[in-house]
Design a protein around this nucleic acid. Structure first.
Lengths: 333, 333
DNA sequence: CACTGGCCTGAAATCGATTGCAAGAATTTC
DNA sequence: GAAATTCTTGCAATCGATTTCAGGCCAGTG
């Protein structure tokens, strides 16, 4: 191992430029305070020495961390990738780092979040999991500002950034009704999930003359497959002629399973998904679905946490509009 | 705004326990050095006061950051989600935070990575982008240890964690040959991409009697669609009877586009993908593909960067084995 | 009984940048 | 030309935890 030269610090630059460390610091963070001649000498010394600030020292002194942590229920779920993407760009352009962490362990148990709810670890928190106990976020201790995105926590008074799930649910069922369907099957999420509840309520509010049959699910491919098996097992007269799945993955698996058993979509059954993940528009038949602007949710959540970090007030709720992507899996009854 | 009590620090706990700050620090980081009686008094004081260490201060003093940064070419690509997942869990269990950042801006231009290549920002770097100029990683300045994962940098001597792309390519073409295909179309990635080169070489090495026709691509759905249009435009005698796409997304789009134009898979053409993203096993027909153990790649990369952080030597290359997932999109010629 | 060694503990230095304060220089005002 | 401002700049304190060093205490040994 070669011996590395010790890292350059502020004092070294100061010596090189013939000024004090304070002056160098000012040139770097508040150049207006320093006389033109001194300033350029300092800049030259900074460049000549290849100085880079030590973040730990700066953060300690300034009592901030320069990073925001995103807590997701499952990092492996591709759904969050686009959201993190939007978030990451927005934060990066404001000079913040994005830290990500899972709220669940390998076995799907919620882990202790105390570790992240600490002002010395992150300046702000973006929470994408609606099932975190509210008391974790309010307990007497001092925690950084929090905003919830996508999901939200019902009994906590935190700013929310979310898609209009109720309207999305309404829109899907309304679309099917307009096609003449009067019996719609829903493939839902976990019952305690806030997204599930909102979409279900929206679906129910869409039209009084549409009968709804709920197949339970959990947003996964497996759940879509299971729902298709249940659907087939029903006597033909009892089978809903249309299906609204609360995630595109469930919708895809539902369609594929039926196809494999000789049914045809949309001839035998119409299907609407939810999310509009990119892939589904490139399948055959292309999935009709409710689009969630995922990147935009990430961006907005980032903007809002930045406002909160600056101490400004933010709207209690930012609602993003749904959009029906009309494609090939729905047809008249 | 309510007035918050000032944050508890080490000195406060020390006063409460009737000892010095040094002793409290020792109890927390090296309990063996402290007498049993003192230790329990300190622990009690820590709990009573709700003390939490200040990371900036600790990091400054210890000259480390407690975090590892993963640099990905496109955070929005769901392919990376599973990798980050494996990585995140492994790092978390070692007490490290995972920072993520994109190596590209919104327009697909590479951004300056200097910002992350800084020992005061991260203790280690996991690079998932093979197109970063090698000089950025070697230039005179001191940077944290780096490992490359998935992709790698040809002219840099950095530890690599990767899937055996050559063997994956070989396996796919061999499988098609075994089914009787003697003309295989490849839908590749960008020409300068290392994954593309390795898979292409593997495909070429599979069998001397198989003719290969390359359709250019870039791993995206759009590229798969474009390749399907090109395929159809060929005179039937010139159309490869089998296709090996270098990503599942391209394979899916290829299949769907052909289906939409009245062709049938695998009757008219056999298709093999690459990656084994979860969704493709739940389509109809289910995609035959080469599985990449994505979570495992993340885990291994994390392990290796942790070793490097500890200063230990690591193998220059960690190769993960391919596996052919035989499903429904391939059939005898 | 004096001495050596081990065990605990506290004082103080240290990590490196930021910033309030005050002093000296330069400029303006009357 | 003296007094009042305004600019610049450096000194020294500060952020909070860790760690070196040295000293106090106690037990064991010759």
């Amino acid at each position: 191992m070669e011996k590395l030269p010790p890292r350059i610090k502020l004092a070294d630059v100061a010596r090189l430029a013939g000024v004090s460390a304070s002056t160098v610091s000012r040139v770097l963070s508040n150049p207006g305070l320093v006389a033109e001649a001194t300033r350029s000498a300092v800049i030259e010394a900074v460049e000549a020495s290849g100085y880079r600030v030590n973040h730990a020292a700066r953060n300690l002194r300034k009592q901030r961390t320069g990073s925001v942590v995103a807590l997701v229920p499952n990092l492996g779920n591709p759904f969050f990738a686009k959201i993190l993407d939007g978030m990451g760009r927005e934060l990066a352009s404001a000079g913040y780092d994005l830290l990500v962490a899972d709220t669940m362990d390998g076995q799907g148990r919620h882990i202790a979040l105390q570790r992240f709810l600490d002002p010395s670890r992150a300046d702000g928190i973006i929470l994408l999991d609606g099932l975190v106990p509210a008391e974790d976020l309010l307990g007497g201790i001092e925690i950084p500002p929090v905003v919830t995105a996508c999901e939200w926590i019902e009994d906590a008074d935190l700013p929310r950034v979310m898609f209009d799930n109720h309207e999305g649910g309404r829109m899907a069922v309304r679309h099917l009704r307009d096609l003449g369907h009067r019996h719609v099957g829903l493939i839902g999420g976990p019952e305690e999930n806030v997204l599930h509840k909102a979409r279900l309520a929206g679906a129910g509010a869409a039209a009084p003359d549409v009968r709804l049959t709920v197949f339970s699910g959990d947003f996964t491919l497996q759940a879509g497959h299971a729902a298709a098996m249940q659907w087939q097992a029903l006597p033909p007269a009892e089978r809903p002629g249309a299906i609204f799945a609360f995630s595109d993955e469930m919708a895809c698996a539902f369609v594929a399973t039926l196809q494999r058993h000789g049914f045809s979509v949309p001839r035998d059954v119409s299907v609407v998904g939810f999310d509009d993940i990119e892939l589904v528009s490139h399948l055959s038949p292309a999935l009709t679905t409710i689009r969630q602007p995922k990147r935009e949710i990430g961006r907005q959540a980032a903007r809002i946490i930045l406002e909160r970090i600056e101490g400004r007030d933010v709207p209690p709720m930012t609602l993003l509009e749904p959009r029906l992507m009309l494609r090939e899996t729905t047809a008249p009854a």
